[in-house]
C-alpha cells in the first residue's frame, strides 16, 4: 500500500472523526464546536476529492 492509499484511509477516518466530533459537540450543547466539526468535515471531503484528482497517476500499491 502506497502513501497515497494510506492517505486516503487517513482522510476517510478524519472525515468520520469530524462528523463524530460534531455530533458529540451538539449533544454536549457546544453549538460552535458542532458547527466547526461540520465545516471541518466538509473541508476534509473537498480536500480528499482534490487530492485524488491531483495524484491520479500515482499507484495505490
Amino acid at each position: 500500500m502506497s502513501l497515497k492509499a494510506f492517505h486516503l484511509i487517513f482522510v476517510t477516518l478524519l472525515t468520520t472523526l469530524s462528523f463524530g466530533f460534531s455530533a458529540w459537540a451538539f449533544i454536549a450543547g457546544q453549538v460552535i464546536f458542532g458547527a466547526l466539526g461540520i465545516v471541518a468535515a466538509i473541508l476534509v471531503i473537498i480536500y480528499g476529492i482534490y487530492f485524488l484528482k491531483k495524484l491520479k497517476k500515482i499507484s495505490y500499491l
Binding site: L3, F6, H7, L13, L14
Partner: peptide, 8 residues
Amino acid sequence: HFVDLVWI
C-alpha cells in the same frame, strides 16, 4: 500517517 491515525 500511522502516528496520525493513532491520534484519531
